[in-house]
Design a protein around this nucleic acid. Sequence first.
DNA 1: CACCCTCGATAAGCGGAGCTGATGGGGTAC
DNA 2: GTACCCCATCAGCTCCGCTTATCGAGGGTG
Lengths: 296, 296
Amino acid sequence: MGYGILADMDPHLLRTYVTVARLSSFSEAARTLGYTQSAVSQHIAALEQDLGAPLLTRRPVVPTAAGERLLEHAGPLLLRLDAARADVVRMAAAPEHGLTLAAAPTALGPRAVAALPAAGVTVRVLARDGIPAAVATGTADLGLVDGLAAPSDPLRLPDVAPLTTHCVGEEPVCVLLPAAHPLARRTGLRLADLSAARWLDAPDAGLPLDRLRAAGGGHGFRPALRYEGTDVRVLTALSAAGHGLTLLPRSVAAGVPGAVAVPVTEPRVVHRTELVCTGALRGTAARLMEVLVGRK
Amino acid sequence: MGYGILADMDPHLLRTYVTVARLSSFSEAARTLGYTQSAVSQHIAALEQDLGAPLLTRRPVVPTAAGERLLEHAGPLLLRLDAARADVVRMAAAPEHGLTLAAAPTALGPRAVAALPAAGVTVRVLARDGIPAAVATGTADLGLVDGLAAPSDPLRLPDVAPLTTHCVGEEPVCVLLPAAHPLARRTGLRLADLSAARWLDAPDAGLPLDRLRAAGGGHGFRPALRYEGTDVRVLTALSAAGHGLTLLPRSVAAGVPGAVAVPVTEPRVVHRTELVCTGALRGTAARLMEVLVGRK
DNA sequence: CACCCTCGATAAGCGGAGCTGATGGGGTAC
DNA sequence: GTACCCCATCAGCTCCGCTTATCGAGGGTG
């Protein structure tokens, strides 16, 4: 079958479009892209003519409704493009330049840390969404992602590229409560009972709130303080100080000073961490993978 | 920030590459694409030089390992490209040309059929994987997909584009057994107990076997006869004739002559059908959506 | 209110990317 | 051996896409 009669959108045009939209300026975009302002103007004009709709208002430079739509597509599209390129290139030339492992903050549990070889590995902590992208584009060789899931259910990851995932482990989920919290003596908690409480909103370090809402059933789970870093220590400290509740895997929530980790009993969710990698793994990467997955 | 320093792969080159790989011939690809054989040859050479690896063996023309890899990327990539284009174009010019609804075979239950307006709608039955793609590229305005899922869990759909989904309904899953089957008198069955049986392999009409394995726990679920059409009547007839078991939603499995529908009790999975659509819905499409989702 | 300065659109010109057509070499069938 | 068939390569041409240059519209500032 064919793929459509229409002409292709040139990725170059797409890139300049997202740059212009991001910077809200033709001239600035031209500078950062190494083009002339004229070229950028022509790029945008070409795109608009091709799609038959204005994408940007000029003065001020702001995306139109159609432009917003295009932006939603453009990000994943360009990401996949880079990923495809990187993946194929990697197959050809594998310089074995030293392994790098990208991990979400709470995904790097004690077991994973113990499994790392003595030397030659770079660990990079990224926001959760960035992990598959990093692996796909070759920025990292392996990735560790974590999240909430039903027991033995795979995680829902954004599919930027054909990646393979392996379960590294599952452990109970705990709510981190300040020691003085009225519920801190409990031995188990139902998530639904906590929907009225205030929760830390830490999309990069902790678990995103919307996943929480999905697991907890209803709405609620109102955000309290928002934390944008990736440091779990800071997150637990904030939670211990009463700035909001957090959900964490037991191994992370256990030893936090001034706070108590109470397991979640309902719904039956676990904290699952998965290893993500491309098909082409060699040498050290393959060995590390085997150790982490425990399939030895 | 930025999206990478490397040059973009030209989608044109990608398209000719997949065409060549599909047809196993440069000349044939040239004919179907409207190029010269020379141009195709240059396209492939350019891609190979860009990626630094041979993508095809010549004589016979077969993808290399790297080429296979590229093929895995190219499909979704080109699909997304078309989807992006179609989505933006659709926003600009909405001709309201008569609504078309794409549905997976078993997704079109009695309730959905009843909800369709008297006239002006085209229904198109496609393989399950094709539904999101059809909606994304504008081939259809709305899509109905179904699948196995934990109760009130969303379906796992390939994300070809930013689409929104709404649950249309959930119903029990049944195993379709020939009336003479030893287990046909049962009132309920555990899926794991059936892993040793032979199953119909009907990826387009029924539920794909790998989803079954995921739900059923272990391995097994060996394929018996393979059916490549999208007609559910044929599927149920094959199953009734003893060519293999099938999993179906109760409403579909109920009235099959010569067969018995036994509900699945374990694991707790339901047959869920979802409506998928793009953000920009107007007129009839929006109304049909509301009726189907039942949010009236 | 006049001035200027910035930003985006447009015109003209040029260089190179990419297509065509022709030719060459290696394989296979008869 | 001969006659294709297929893919690679080369030369030539065309047109696309970039740059330089100029213009018009806003928005500050004295």
